[in-house]
Design a protein around this nucleic acid. Sequence first.
DNA 1: CCGCCTCGAGTTCT
DNA 2: CTCGAGGCGG
Length: 671
Amino acid sequence: MTSRPPQQPDREIKSLRDEIRRHERLYYVLDRPEITDAEFDALMRRLRELEAAFPQYASDDSPTRRVGGERSNTFAPVPHRVPMLSLDNCYSEEEFMDWHARVVKGLGGEKFELAVEAKIDGLSCSIEYAGGRLARASTRGDGETGEDVTLNVRTIGAVPLSLPAGAPGDFEARGEVYMDKRDFESLVKEALEAGEEPFVNPRNAAAGSLRQKDPAVTARRRLKFFAHSYGHLAAGAEPASHWEYLERCRELGFPVSSVRKLCGGAVEVVDFYRDHAEKRFSLPYEIDGLVVKVNSLRQQKLLGFTAKSPRWAIAFKYPAQQAVTRVLGVEFSVGRTGAVTPVAQLEPVKCGGVTISSATLHNFDEIARLGLKIGDRVVIERAGEVIPKVVRADASARDGSERDIVPPKKCPSCGSELFKDEEEVALRCVNPSCPAQLRRSLLHFASRDAMRIEGLGESSVDQLLARGLLKSFPDIYRLKKEDLLGLELFKDKKAGNLLAEIARSKEQPLSRLIYALGIRHIGEKSGRTLAEHFRTMKAFMDAGPEELAKVPDVGPVVAEAVSEFFKSAATRSMIGELESLGLRMDEPERASSGNKLDGRTFVFTGELKGMTRSEAQARVRGLGGKETSSVSAKTSYVVAGADPGSKLDKARKLGVTVLTEEEFLKLLAGE
DNA sequence: CCGCCTCGAGTTCT
DNA sequence: CTCGAGGCGG
């Protein structure tokens, strides 16, 4: 390329920058480019040349600085001046109307407008300007503190590096960083051609691209940005409404979604929602719902916040993405208790951002209800949850080649005959030495809530089983270093770690051991109740049904299951072996550090920041409180961490007190 | 006997 | 997380 000698380099640089900015805005913000990509690139090249030749005119907010040459090794934490909260979700018109009714009530019947925007599937980001220049950009993180991704955000064309004259000097825009469907598709293609694992959905691609160490990589990913929320507002600069704020963002050069509407009432919102149920698929980016906000900031303040989200906004999501696929076959998995469960093998299909290849069918009643045959075309969905579900079979798509799903007569693992208890749905394999059951039992025994043997997971157990080194629980405690070193996947250190873990697990209290044995109907909770009642394994083993039934929460069915379990001489001698191998066989007196929480019950939902859930549960128990798994009117507190699930909704419905993690800690500390 | 409160068991994918 | 079912109070 030829460089003509500039007459007045400073003036040419300035006009080039202005022109490039104008085209960036046309392309990214207005979606109305006036020049081709090649022409745009030529302008960029010329500007780069000039800046290189006349470094005295370099400037931080030049469009050439979008692709940073610098690298950042870590993402520094950035505390958010105003927390970045997540939104509450609703999945149906009915739930939306419930939210609307709460707003009406909260505003005491006052009239209000609703601002509706597309909810883009990307990741939220805060962008702060100081003195009119982009000063810092950060991810949402846990809502309180995010990660500094300034260098990467600078590469996003749609994000202005500086604000136009007359803009407030200090400004924070919050919005969504996302990737267009088309850019995502080509990224996937490139990755496949390069033999790399592609991102599974545009959201992950955007998140992965933003967290690149090298901003040059981020720059190539063509990320985009929509402003959608305010963060910190400079005093005196508050807009009167959300709609006004969006207009201001546009004036400052930020793109905002064109899928939006200012609605006068709930009916208009629902119409807009229905209208976009189909239309959304033809948008250039993925949306999973709408965000509905009370428009007036004054009314927003009036409504305030709940433990985790604003009361004045809600994400009105489209129902579980459904997908259509075919049933390739049905496999039968054998559980720890011998229960045989049919699992549909599906032709892999994308649904809600992940690829689904199998789905449980639960039992044969379910198969009958669905009228399902192998080869059927089926509709699957991942509702508000994660677990895929077959919704219905499409009988009209049959061509006659479909086959019935026949309940197996024999166990798919050991070939022994299967039985069906009267009045029970499940088929069971009753062979006590069935390999599939043994495998699941061993995994259960070692699992985190039972004997907690880290390193004895699926792959180790499979290898040890294949070598014939594990045939029973006591065998775990007979493993020697030589046994492990014979296996491919065990290096010296790893073998030592596993043996240390195994030795450590011998000290687990009786309650965990009882649970680990996998007696039917005995879970974690009953294990503890029984251990606390009987104190020693001997007393527990020798208890008759009537003695067992005296234990709270133990009725005839559970009592029968326990005596049945210990009736077998083999079981009793297995327990004897465990004892002689040095396992603890009693329950230590619980060190109760008080009973401040006596009689109060807790339910946890979402992820805690400062501790794991089992630590939190242990602390509640230590103070005399109880932890349960489901919310009811009797629940004293629901502790909501990050990303809480349906239990939070239930708590609200029942009027149960909801605590944040901070409030929970204060309660533990006795405040 | 009914209905509420719990617990247990099984499951998917990253 | 959800479903099914056991335990128990009314």
